[in-house]
Nucleic acid binder design. Sequence first.
RNA 1: GCGACAGUGGCUCAGUUGGAUAGAGCAAUGGUCUUCUAAACCAUGGGUCGCGGGUUCGAACCCCGCCUGUCGCACCA
Length: 567
Amino acid sequence: MDLRHTIAQKISTALSQLDTTLTTDQVADMLEVPKTLDLGDFAFPAFQLAKSLHRSPVQIAQQLAPLVDADGLSKVEAKGPYVNVFLNQPVFAETTFKAILSDPEAYGSADVGQGGNVPIDMSSPNIAKPMSMGHLRSTVIGNALANIYSKLGYHPIKINHLGDWGTQFGKLIVGYKMWGSEEAVKENPIKNLLAYYVRFHKEDKDHPEMDDEAREWFRKLEDGDPEATKLWSWFREISLKEFQKVYDQLGVTFDSYNGEAFYNDKMDEVIDILESKGLLEKSQGADIVDLSPEGLNPALIRKSDGASLYMTRDLAAAIYRKRTYHFVKSLYVVGAEQKEHFDQLKAVLQRMGFAWADEIVHVPFGLITENGKKLSTRSGRIILLEKVLQDAVALAQKQVDEKNPTLANKKEVAHQVGVGAVVFHDLKNDRMDNFDFNLEEVVRFEGETGPYVQYTNARAQSILRKAGKTGADLVDAPALDDAGAWEVVRDLGNFPEMVTRAAKEYEPSVIAKYALRLAKAFNKYYAHTKVLTGDASQDSRLALVASVSAVLQSALALLGVGAPAEM
RNA sequence: GCGACAGUGGCUCAGUUGGAUAGAGCAAUGGUCUUCUAAACCAUGGGUCGCGGGUUCGAACCCCGCCUGUCGCACCA
């Protein structure tokens, strides 16, 4: 039984003495956490009882407070219409520190997932195009969710659903054959492949025959023509190698690179099923599934020329993932602009008789703009992720040189701080928030930022280093009795709940905000309390410091952000 | 036009899902390093929570209407 329910039970028992029956669960739901520390750690509002007891909430609170069994608590008092409950701080601190320090990895973990598979569709850049800030969002959100779900006992499967098929490959081949060379592509694959693509779009306006040619090459590719296939797989391979550089910097790995091409031979079955169930209709020459009963636009399954579409491919992918992974949940970390697509996808799967469609979850996120404008590869309005990371690391390097010139592994730290700033910035706000890109904002090191959290951890580590103790040495430290540390202690105790909430809401920002809250509380403590004084309570304070460091590291790890011991 | 998402200090955002006096960061001003890392801490100013109704003992949060912005709405993904 958790703390909330323990207290709820006490209150429930007390209420029965006032001839009121509320179950422990009901009381637990009503319990609030007051916004300021002087109002205690939990509060029970008496408003709702006023009617049935024919008394004012203030009176009820006054009568109820003395009836609550205060064993294990430090105080129960009525304040206005609330009964405020104060925890026994030293006891709570001791159990919390012990829980953290005896097994830091396990703290906040749970086995609710029981090893169930959770494929996560994420990142998904397009071959021959550079990765942009938009891909960063999908990548880091997906990665953080994978970490969070893993901590809760699920088995995430990170799938990079590459954009590696489509008519653009016809254009790419034509462009390459007209203007490209093997050397140029090898020298700078993405840049040059993109240049062919962009140039193609410029020139095909005056030379419509180029489009026919591109269509022809894509047709060849679909038919397995050796030359087309060879070029395609080369473009794919060489692009992937470029993407890998970014993933290495971010520290993100994948379990599968099955992209769009992978499903080429799996779409016929989808159409067969749809046909056999009589779901397909002709409309304006195309094959569709009418979703008007669901209040959705029709799902386009096959173009009038018989070619398949995005929807067809995603249906095949969804079914493949269910068969392969027997998932308990299937996540798609894809921009909010594709919401309707996923609504349609789920609706069609439902129509096909797949009840597991309910377990498909679109995890949408907001748009990144620049100067208020939407980014677009074709128009060249694009923020190169590689460049952003590069700039961030360079700025961090400058900062480290300035602040800590004698640091041994400056390069590594600069990398962790620079990349950490970018990743944290992307994860700290609600997924759905749109944001306008601003390099200075993204790579900020002060205030509510990733480096702030990293710095807090580095300070804590520094204290432990000076003391010559590790967390393991402090497991049995005596209880900390220091009202000034209470905010920190309480935050520490909240970590497990935050992990659960982040998973439930598919919202890494819950963890990022939590890390900021804990870091802020600790910095305040740090500024007011000297840890290494040599007195009898030193080990108790050190246990606090070690606990903070451990939890900050856990939180940063969940977000995919590094935690240097010094910076 | 229809639908989705959003609207909270000058700027960027929180607000534990309906509770006590609406909180942070940035920016501004002032203060704190001979003492564990000043990437920090402390203080001051700054608000009709888009607007109008409604539900409720109680609304930034729920319901209805309106305004503004963004995204989506058939053969791209």
